[in-house]
Design a protein around this nucleic acid. Structure first.
Lengths: 194, 194
DNA sequence: CGGGACATGTAAGCCGTTACATGATTCG
DNA sequence: CGAATCATGTAACGGCTTACATGTCCCG
């Protein structure tokens, strides 16, 4: 999925600026399974405007660049849904440098291994909070994708968020349950080798 | 982490050809958290050879291109470990087109939603099997990274594999537990809208 | 007899990241 | 007073994917 399609999806929930779209991928409802940086979002929005899939209204601001508030056109909405229906989704891809590093834990000082594991756990705990659509410290996201007109969380969004949280929980739990065993195994392994 | 570093890591377990390295990322012990395609592995190995980090022996084969069996030099081994120690690992990134699509489940026919969810579950069940270092239907991987001289699974590899399986299990379980609820919610949502 | 596994390699092209350019405001 | 937030935009550079090139063997 290219950034253009991602932007269309982000706008399914209503209006947004390029800056706000990035936040959805950074902090918000998409943060755990897609990413996009500003350097790709702005050109994508320009292209989508040219293609008539989105339009924008400029809001003047004092001492700041004018804000461009984008919204889907009906063409854009149709195009997006057609894209979802036609392209069967690519395989998931998960990349983790931390896990790659930990694969070689035998070669690292134990303190580093411990630090890496702890950092890993913290990251997933943090992510768990970011995912939660109900009530993090971000009331402002009340609008945005994933809410219907009454402000209720839409079923699809709820399911995906729940799945993300289940993954995070499992990760954090596994670490809690297995960290000490790993340390023990590593010590045994190292003393055996020497 | 670039493909060069990934290749060094793959060779930490012993000798391998470029083709075999790809398999480690496709099927094997790294499959759930890193990827690399042949088009990037071969150039990486060439570069690593030039830099003196790996060497290869050519094995002639009948009716096939000569097989190049690569192995780490001691420089390569040192370089790899230093890389792990120096660069603090980048953030994990997980991309899932399926989850992105499912976020907009309200816009899709329910049959498609169901099909997507089922496919998702199957993929994660399959991955779970691929990860298991103990005894899948791939005895041949007895060597390869993650084993010590006695053929035992190294602690780091065991931990990472366990974590991968925990993630897969959680995913599959969540789907089993929540699929029907989602369908129900979707039906309610759609009838409310019309 | 087609497709997949085995086996290596090159090259074009895409896409995205990173960095740069600009600038006020607010928080610690 | 530095860093982060808000806000948009361009451009270079890099890295990976995809496709092409070549050829055999084996399985169904």
């Amino acid at each position: 999925m290219d950034v253009r399609t991602l932007c269309l999806g982000a706008l399914m929930g209503g209006e947004a600026t390029g800056y706000e779209i990035r936040k959805m991928f950074e902090d918000g409802p998409f943060s755990h399974f897609q990413i996009a940086s500003l350097g790709s979002i702005y050109p994508a929005l320009t292209k989508l405007t040219q293609d008539g899939l989105v339009t924008f209204v400029e809001h003047e601001q004092e001492n700041r660049p004018d804000k461009k508030i984008y919204r889907l056109t009906s063409d854009g909405r149709q195009k997006f849904i057609r894209t979802l229906l036609q392209n069967r989704p690519a395989e998931d891809r998960y990349r983790s440098d931390i896990l790659f590093t930990l694969t070689f834990a035998e070669e690292l000082p134990i303190e580093l291994t411990e630090a890496l594991i702890d950092e890993f756990a913290v990251r997933y705990e943090t992510m768990n909070n970011l995912i939660d659509p109900n009530n993090p410290d971000k009331e402002d996201c009340a609008s945005g994708p994933g809410r219907d007109d009454d402000g209720n969380i839409k079923p699809g969004c709820k399911f995906v968020a729940g799945l993300g949280q289940a993954m995070c929980d499992a990760t954090v739990k596994f670490i809690k349950d297995n960290k000490q065993d790993l340390i023990k195994d590593l010590k045994a392994f190292k003393s055996k080798k020497s």
